[in-house]
Every structure is written in C-alpha cells, then in structure tokens.
C-alpha cells in the first residue's frame, strides 16, 4: 500500500504537469484572454483586401495593436473588414487603413497610419480612409502595357 501511495503521487504530479502545460500553452500561444479576445471593434471598407483574413495582424507604426476578426463582402463589391483593437490604443478619426504585405511574398496585414485629428475613434466606428491591396500582377501588367505604348 505504501508503494501505491507513491504511485498515486507521481500520477497526480504527471496529470498536474499536463494541465499546467496545457494552460501555459493556451495562455502564451493561443492568446486566451490576450490580443484576440479583448479590445474594441472598428470596421473599414476596402475595394480589395487581397488576402487579409481572420487573424491577420493590425499594426500601427509596425507594432501589432490588434487583429482582424472578420472579413466579408459588402454590397457585392466591397470588402468589409472588422478589426479588434487592443484597449488603450487610441486611433484618430482620420486614421488611414491600408492593406500591406510583409516582405515581397509575405502575408497580408492591415497598416493603420494615424492622422492629425484630435478626435478619437469609438468602439464600432468605421475608418473612412482606406487604401486597397497593391496587386503585383496589376503592377506588372500596367508596366508591360505602358512600355508597349
């Protein structure tokens, strides 16, 4: 029976370690209660989001301040992007949202460039000024088109 006690304790430790590990991973990597969940939503309409999707980064001056929480089609021609911005980050009402690429072939993210207004965006507000994705194929075809003229 003495040895069973010992086994019981070891198994208890094993299970406890597992649960702590899971909790730690969920908190550190899965952002439970982190960036993804907390914050306030703002929306923006783009004519082309070129691959931005749920979970894409939202950055101000290269710093991640939030995450795209939803992308859907609006009025059959525009893309409506909903972003969740961390609490404490204040965006001016004339902030510019643009779709950018990390590196040349990297993934898409949304860059926010602060404006000069003193007024601050509220939860649920829409960003008026947007800049759509730069499409490399468009650029290339434009270049070819222009040079042949």
């Amino acid at each position: 029976m003495q040895s069973y006690r010992k086994i019981e304790i070891v198994v208890g430790l094993f299970v406890l370690l597992g649960i702590i590990g899971m909790g730690w991973m969920a908190a550190k990597l899965g952002q439970v209660g982190g960036l993804a969940d907390e914050g306030y939503p703002v929306t923006a309409t783009f004519s082309d989001v070129g691959g931005v999707r749920d979970g894409s980064d939202v950055m101000v001056a290269g710093v991640v301040v939030g995450r795209v929480s939803n992308v859907r089609l609006k009025g059959n021609e525009h893309a409506l992007v909903t972003m969740t911005i961390q609490p404490g980050v204040q965006l001016t009402t004339d902030v510019i949202a643009s779709v950018r690429t990390k590196g040349i072939i990297g993934e898409r993210y949304i860059r926010l460039t602060q404006g000069a207004d003193t007024e601050i965006l509220e939860s649920g507000d829409e960003i008026e000024e947007t800049e759509s994705a730069l499409n490399i194929e468009d650029l290339v075809s434009k270049y070819i088109f222009n040079s042949s003229e």
Binding site: M22, M25, G30, A36
Partner: peptide, 15 residues
C-alpha cells in the same frame, strides 16, 4: 511570429 501565428484553435486541434 510563433505567438502571432499559433491560434487557440491550433492548440485545440492538437489536443
């Protein structure tokens, strides 16, 4: 990159 790319659903999928 690790933190920003790994989603909670990835962890769930693994478990």
């Amino acid at each position: 990159e690790m933190i920003s790319k790994v989603m909670l659903q990835d962890l769930y999928a693994g478990w």
